[in-house]
Amino acid sequence: MAWVEQFETTIPNDTAAAIEVQERIVSRLEELGYPPRDVFGCRLALEEALVNAIKHGNDNDPSKSVRVKCCIGAESFAIEIEDEGPGFEPQDVPDPTAEENLEKPSGRGIMLMRAFMTRVDYQGRGNRVLLEKARGNGDDE
């Protein structure tokens, strides 16, 4: 796969820094003409993954940081987000669409990432997530 852009960066554990990375990646996808649904899904998945890393993984600890590795091609992109936390088991997260969880105010981030990305894979001890997306055809998928 020939990537048009590749970068790796380590950001401080705060959401303002996360927004900057988000903007950088989303702008590149827009420049490459990715369909609006892909851009929407990428921004949403990035927001969810970065907030999870900062808040849950790194427990809002300002001394910690988040590593972001990004590879963007004309037909697909892959983003790796790694926090310094102890990790978790994604299968232990309750199904937010189950009747008993429907009114709970949290627990929907991973489900949204999976819905909008082609592949979401938790790696290492569960402190690293890989988001992959193949370019859509521009129709509603």
Binding site: E103, P105, G107
Partner: peptide, 17 residues
């Protein structure tokens, strides 16, 4: 609104309650 995240959904659920 063009974008909203799961944290925003959480606030809407609390508001509804």
């Amino acid at each position: 609104v063009e974008y909203l995240s799961s944290a925003a959904l959480g606030k809407l659920i609390t508001l509804d309650k």
